[in-house]
């Protein structure tokens, strides 16, 4: 890639930061060029984020309908899935999935709740309810 061809698309996912890209200068030697982003990269990052948001919105509906516990929503809200959550808490996946049932979740001891709050970085009070706004995810 020529250094003059390094994309400078000011993509939003960088949040005003720049990334170093290796490119060939006019003299044929490699240099590091600051890039404000490539749209192709932005599309891929956004897609991954959108998928997590979509899952969080679906999860919110399930929680509101009484089909799942708030834990299910918070997992996606914090950009995790069952595998990541299991590794972060040290619980088995099947236990976590069982805790997605509202009936089971309601009876969880503090010790287990603490493992979840620790892994998710939220308080117990936050964990036990849904946040107010629709789609206010992943903050």
């Amino acid at each position: 890639m020529k250094s003059s061809k390094v994309p400078q698309h000011n993509i939003s996912t960088y949040g005003d930061n720049k990334k170093a890209i290796y490119a060939v200068g006019t003299d044929g030697r490699y240099t590091r060029v600051c890039s404000s982003g490539w749209k192709v990269e932005e599309a891929a990052t956004k897609q991954a984020l959108d998928e997590l948001t979509r899952l969080a919105i679906l999860a919110r509906k399930d929680v509101l309908a009484g089909k799942a516990s708030p834990l299910y929503f918070h997992m996606y809200d914090r950009r995790m899935d069952v595998q990541t959550l299991a590794q972060a808490t040290g619980l088995f996946k099947w236990r976590i999935q069982r805790h997605f049932q509202p009936r089971v979740f309601a009876r969880l001891p503090e010790k287990i709740l603490a493992r979840y709050t620790d892994a998710l970085g939220i308080s117990v009070a936050q964990l036990c309810q849904l946040p107010q706004e629709e789609g206010a995810g992943a903050q």
Partner: peptide
């Protein structure tokens, strides 16, 4: 679609200097 996006992310997003470290 997610699979294809995943390839692009691994190649460009995670600080590879472009083209999945090939330029470096």
């Amino acid at each position: 679609r997610l699979f294809m996006g995943h390839i692009v992310r691994m190649q460009e997003e995670i600080g590879t200097g472009g083209a999945g470290f090939r330029f470096i």
